[in-house]
Amino acid sequence: MLSLRISASSGVPVYLQIEQQIKQSIASGVLCVGDSLPSTRRTAADLRINPNTVARAFQNLEREGVIRTVPGGGTYVANFAAPGAGLLKAEKIRRLRPLASQLAVEASQLRFSPEDLHKLLDAALLELEKARRANKSDSSSGTQEGDR
C-alpha cells in the first residue's frame, strides 16, 4: 500500500516530495498499473498539507504520463507506468544528470573508488528489481485469497 511521508524541514518542496514518492512506489512495484490513488483532499487530510499542493503534484504526474485522472472517477496509475516509457532519452538524461553529479561529488569527498560506486549502484538496482518481484508475487497470491 502507498504510504507517503512529508518532511517539512528538508527544504525540498512538498509537491516534489509527493511526486518522487509516488514514482518510487511505482518503480518498486508497491503501486501497479491500474491501481487507484486516494483523492487529492483525502491525501491532503492524511498528510496535513494543503490540498492545492497535492493537486499540483498530481497534475505534474499526469502531465508526465505517470498517472491518469478519470473526470469524476478518481486517479489511477497509468498504463505507461514503467516510469518514463514515454520520455525521450534526452529528457531522461536531463532529469538524472543532477542526481548523478551529486552522487559523484559525495563519493569523491568520501574518497570512495569509482569501482565501488558502480557496485553500489548495481546493488541498488538489484534491490529495486527484487522488491518489484516480491510485490508482484504478493499481489497475485493476494488476489487468490480474495479481497484484502
Binding site: I6, A8, S9, V14, L47, R48, I49, N50, N52, T53
Partner: peptide
C-alpha cells in the same frame, strides 16, 4: 511556522 508551512498555500 512548521505547521503553517505544511497547510498554508
Amino acid at each position: 511556522l512548521a505547521e503553517i508551512e505544511q497547510i498554508a498555500d
